[in-house]
């Protein structure tokens, strides 16, 4: 849903939504506060920028964004946990966790994107490119 918000409403709103969603996740799971916020903010901002620029009006944009976001979030979480000194198994991340997460999120991507589009509606202004100057 965060990917859909970022694609539909742009990088800044997407990142803000992701930040607060991350706070909720960390609070609910009693995890280290800020870890999910940090990762989701970065990922949602990137997805938002992609939606504002090259991903505009491309039908495969939601699917591609979901796959990329899932991979980025999982790898980012792995890196962050390693840096924080938590015991994390690379084998578990790369071979057991990543593929099911990508498959599940990809399956859910289309209906969730459609639902979010209906809820939020399209906002043409937000989908216009920001800070991108096309040559020629």
């Amino acid at each position: 849903m965060l990917v859909a918000i970022a694609l539909l409403r742009g990088a800044v709103i997407g990142a803000a939504a992701a930040f607060f969603a991350g706070l909720l996740v960390d609070t609910a799971t009693l995890g280290t506060l800020g870890v999910s916020s940090l990762l989701l903010t970065i990922v949602a901002y990137w997805v938002g920028r992609y939606g504002e620029t090259t991903g505009r009006d491309r039908t495969h944009a939601p699917l591609l964004s979901v796959v990329a976001a899932t991979v980025a979030f999982t790898l980012g979480a792995f890196g962050l946990h390693v840096m924080l000194g938590d015991g994390v198994s690379a084998r578990l991340v790369f071979f057991e966790s990543l593929l099911p997460a990508v498959l599940l999120n990809t399956l859910a991507a289309t209906p969730v994107f459609a639902l979010t589009s209906r809820l939020l509606g399209r906002e043409d202004g937000a989908r216009a490119p920001r800070g991108v100057k096309l040559a020629g």
Partner: peptide
């Protein structure tokens, strides 16, 4: 927001369990 998240991670990680953020 990224900076704020980093600050939260740092405080959450370093603070004791009886601290304000916890």
């Amino acid at each position: 927001m990224v900076l704020l998240a980093l600050v939260l991670v740092t405080i959450s990680f370093r603070e004791s369990e009886s601290g304000g953020l916890h």
